[in-house]
């Protein structure tokens, strides 16, 4: 009797121990996030004592080491925006199209080959994408379009778009798999063919899930650094065309942080850019989360 009690007691305490360990692991990412936010604010905010927030965001000139220095990040924000829009034009059709094919059309054997292949794209380090862009894509576009340099917004968009395909594709495929089988069966039963079923039933039903996939893909593109540093050209101008070089926010931080003196205005300005980037992707992720939740409710998949 006594021994049974003892066994169960040790089991309970052991279970408690495991619970605590896993709780600590789960909460540790929260601590990291908090730490990052605190540092971003602590190191980024001091810039606003020398430049006003309005001037920082809407200033058209980025000359951080010049005397007198100018810290206007509008060209950098627009650089990020242009490259992101361009990349979305590449990765939405490719990613969602691939997901539709994989989930709705491909037979299991083809799927078994295609799906891992697409996922391999995600595991290629971004510097290799950058190198590929610099050595292959940029010279190719330069000759094809007869532009002065191939290191431009278009090249960056193409490469970033391809980089985001795996994430959009696999999340969109998840969204498609949440659409109940009965929806499709009902559609076929009404005499709809496969194309009609995909465009009028499956896609709308998975719509918000696919939007989530796209938004998360966008976060990935906005935050991508190495590739844009290598292929976007790096000119801090307000972009006028896709065929001109530009400089996204991430590339600026990467290029200049290593040589900015710690504690200088330049250093704080780079952290403030980081803050802007962080807030942007945070908003994207929140939107994705909200849409994702609604969509589960709509399909009766509330969890």
């Amino acid at each position: 009797m006594k021994s049974v009690l003892q066994v169960s007691r040790t089991r309970v305490s052991r279970e408690k121990l495991y619970k605590t360990i896993f709780a600590v692991l789960a909460f540790s990412s929260l601590i990291f996030l908090l730490g990052i936010i605190i540092i971003l604010f602590k190191e980024g905010l001091p810039i606003f004592s020398s430049v006003s927030l309005m001037k920082f965001i809407t200033g058209a000139f980025w000359y951080p080491t010049h005397e007198p220095a100018e810290f206007g990040i509008l060209p950098l924000i627009l650089g990020t925006l242009w490259v992101t829009v361009g990349a979305m034009l590449v990765c939405i059709p490719l990613g969602v199209g691939a997901a539709l094919y994989l989930h709705e059309i491909a037979n299991p054997r083809l799927r078994a080959i295609l799906k891992p292949t697409i996922e391999i794209l995600a595991s290629i380090p971004s510097i290799i994408y950058g190198f590929f862009g610099m050595v292959v894509v940029a010279p190719f576009l330069q000759n094809l379009l007869r532009i002065p340099t191939g290191l431009c917004a278009l090249t960056a968009s193409l490469i970033l778009g391809i980089m985001a395909v795996p994430i959009v594709c696999s999340l969109a495929e998840d969204a498609l798999s949440f659409v109940p089988r009965s929806f499709r069966e009902a559609s076929f039963a009404l005499g709809a063919n496969r194309w009609q079923t995909i465009t009028r039933v499956t896609l709308p039903a998975a719509g918000s899930g696919i939007s989530t996939a796209i938004i998360l893909g966008m976060s990935r593109i906005v935050g991508e650094t190495m590739t844009v540093l290598m292929v976007a050209g790096g000119a801090a101008v307000i972009p006028k065309s896709m065929l001109e070089p530009l400089r996204p926010m991430t590339a600026t931080i990467a290029a200049e942080m290593g040589e900015a003196v710690i504690g200088s205005t330049h250093y704080h300005a780079l952290f403030a850019i980081g803050l802007v980037l962080f807030l942007t992707t945070l908003v994207f992720n929140l939107i994705a989360e909200v849409i994702g939740r609604r969509y589960r409710l709509k399909l009766g998949l509330d969890r």
């Binding site: 000139f61 060209p75 610099m134 340099t149 290191l151 540093l229 290598m230 050209g233 790096g234 000119a235 801090a236 101008v237 001109e244 070089p245 400089r247 590339a251 990467a254 290029a255």
Partner: peptide, 15 residues
Amino acid sequence: KDALLNASNKAVVMA
């Protein structure tokens, strides 16, 4: 402003 930026001497030569 529209000068291309490169992060190293080698990258300038390559460009």
